[in-house]
Design a protein around this nucleic acid. Structure first.
Length: 382
DNA sequence: TACTCGTGGGC
DNA sequence: TGCCCAAGAGT
């Protein structure tokens, strides 16, 4: 079809749609990247446990765990989790509490809640078998564009693109893609490039090659350009712009969050509470916590804890403070030994209350922050 | 759109 | 040490 021609006497329309890529690579440029990168991957890929399996469930699990989490951290979690929940059916049938326990310490706990929900949907909607296309996967909880493309290409061989932090950096440099992380036009360009590149043989390996290259060679700082298999096709390398692309993302300063924790001992047990499913540490167990002002008085703290537990509380002693740095939270946990006339067994502020011995508590799903607080409390109580 | 949601490694 | 950030998704 002939392209529309600008009418005489009228300036041609300038296309500024955000969906039009600003980079239009030639077929030769694409080929100069695809083949060497795939060859490089075959020779240099790391021996990672999820690269030894073809089980889509196991691959899916690895992709979820790897979201915003480093490979070395994930490996032992992946192996333990798979041993505990070896199939989609086993995961779907397990109580959420057990799933969160298996995720304990890995962070971003909504991943575990969504994984569990998705497993149940795979059973109810797809007969227990993970669907094989990115479009279908996208409809499941916890499957965004990245994870859908990753599972579809790696586990099922679909020519589905993916863009993660590594791929964004690699493609930004190779094709000189401008713009800040989060910029719509930039994202559209990166996905368009990934879509063009993944077409061909072994799409799953090619996607992993892009990520592996970013993780090991085309690193954020001190990239190893002299060892790069595609540097001759890299626009940023040719122009000396490797250090400028991509620009660093601007991160908001962490906000302060202060929690008062009730350390309520009875016999050989402590009182524990399970948080609401949404929000920070959703669904996890904790020493019952209430948010307080940074400069809260003891009276205010008493009021907050009483309100949270729905039972009168007396502050007996300040046992210590645990500080914890999250990505966007500056967390302060204040430990108070408390007592009260009536020992609560349920409360409106929590999903569940439970009196547990330390060994029972060890099996509960609990954040690392709370784990540290619990250790501090046990030490102080001795 | 911009914010929320954890953790440990590396420098 | 303090600060950077890593195989993103949900709202």
């Amino acid at each position: 079809m002939e392209p529309p021609r600008a009418k005489r006497g009228r300036p041609p329309r300038t296309v500024v749609s955000a969906r039009v890529p600003t980079v239009t690579p030639s077929a030769a440029h694409l080929a100069s990247v695809r083949t060497p990168l795939l060859d490089w991957y075959d020779r240099n890929k790391r021996d990672l446990p999820w690269r030894r399996t073809k089980d889509p469930y196991a691959i899916w699990l690895s992709e979820v765990m790897l979201q915003q989490t480093q490979v070395a951290t994930v490996i032992p979690y992946w192996e333990r989790f798979l041993a505990r929940f070896p199939t989609v059916l086993a995961l779907a049938a397990a109580p959420l509490d057990d799933v969160l326990s298996g995720w304990k310490g890995l962070g971003y706990y909504s991943r575990a809640r969504n994984l569990h929900r998705a497993a149940q949907e795979v059973v109810s909607r797809f007969g227990g078998k993970l669907p094989s296309t990115a479009a279908e996967l996208l409809s499941l909880p916890g499957f965004g564009r990245y994870t859908s493309g990753a599972v579809a290409s790696i586990a099922f061989g679909e020519q589905a693109p993916l863009v993660d932090g590594n791929v964004a950096r690699v493609l930004s440099r190779l094709f000189e893609v401008e713009g800040l992380p989060g910029d719509r036009e930039r994202e559209a360009t990166l996905w368009e490039l990934a879509t063009l590149l993944v077409k061909g043989e072994r799409p799953g390996d090619f996607n992993q090659a892009l990520m592996e290259h970013g993780a090991t060679t085309c690193r954020p700082e001190n990239p190893l350009c002299l060892l790069c298999p595609v540097r001759t096709g890299c626009v940023a390398f040719r122009k000396g712009r490797v250090d400028e692309l991509p620009p660093a993302k601007v991160r908001a300063a962490p906000k302060k969050l202060t929690l008062a924790l009730a350390v309520w001992a009875h016999a050989d047990t402590l009182l524990f509470a399970r948080r609401a499913d949404s929000g920070l540490f959703g669904g996890l167990w904790e020493l019952p916590a209430a948010e307080v002002d940074e400069d809260a008085t003891e009276a205010e703290t008493t009021l907050r804890l009483t309100g949270a537990l729905g039972a009168g509380v007396k502050l007996e002693a300040m046992l210590g403070t645990v500080k914890r740095q999250l990505t966007h939270r500056d967390l302060t946990l204040r430990l108070y030994r408390v007592s009260g006339p009536l020992r609560p067994t349920r409360s409106a502020a929590f999903q569940e209350l439970r009196w547990c011995t330390p060994s029972e508590a060890a099996t509960l799903g609990m954040s690392t922050a709370m784990q540290r607080a619990l250790e501090a409390a046990m030490t102080a109580l001795k």
